[in-house]
């Protein structure tokens, strides 16, 4: 009776693919960098007074790198969530200002609030290339030894924040 069962079987396979298609988390663009050590960098701060940022200085504790720019619409979407995250003071958030004009960036932060404990300026996107940045905004979670543990492309939402905290808890202290 396989003849009469075949429509059902074909359909089940098809439904499997459709389901997979739905559950594919499209935001997960696999980064070859995950599990690798972050590239070394040296960046100037956003304003003239702020000191240079060295990648080595950030290590020692897990931290977040958030790539942002004042010209980027979706960055504004994720901004409230970043501010909320900063308010918890649970983790150091490092901002990588990407291909931006520094005065625009400063104004933008003044207007919308500054969630970053430190900011590095990457006007030509040189460091971003090393990080494999795909678009802005983009967010990385780095463990205390400088290994990339998590990457998110696109604006953050509450789910990603929860995911970040989950990974954070699993990290050896």
């Amino acid at each position: 009776m396989i003849k009469y069962l075949s429509p059902l079987l074909v359909f089940i396979v098809l439904a499997g693919f459709l389901a997979k298609g739905l559950y594919l988390n499209p935001k997960e663009i696999p980064s070859p960098l995950i599990g690798k050590k972050i590239p070394d960098f040296k960046l100037s701060g956003l304003s003239k007074e702020s000191p240079l940022v060295f990648s080595d200085d950030l290590l020692g504790e897990p931290f977040i790198i958030n790539v942002f720019a004042s010209w980027c619409g979706p960055c504004l979407d994720e901004h409230p969530i970043l501010i909320e995250l900063a308010d918890t003071k649970a983790i150091h958030v490092f901002g990588l200002n990407y291909k931006d004009n520094s005065s625009n960036a400063l104004n933008w932060l003044e207007k919308h609030g500054n969630p970053y404990q430190s900011i590095g300026v990457d006007p030509k996107g040189v460091v971003a290339i090393d990080f494999g940045v795909y678009g802005v905004p983009e967010t990385f979670l780095i463990d205390s030894d400088g290994f990339i543990r998590f990457k998110h492309v696109g604006p953050l939402n509450r789910e990603t924040i929860n995911e970040i905290f989950k990974i954070l808890e699993e990290l050896p202290k």
């Binding site: 009776m1 009469y4 069962l5 429509p7 059902l8 359909f11 439904a15 459709l18």
Partner: peptide, 21 residues
């Protein structure tokens, strides 16, 4: 919609497999 699709079409094809012979 996928769940609904699976339910409706799956049930229909099963019914077909039982009754059509």
């Amino acid at each position: 919609i996928l769940a609904f699709l699976v339910l409706v079409v799956g049930a229909s094809f099963s019914l077909y497999a039982i009754r059509a012979p």
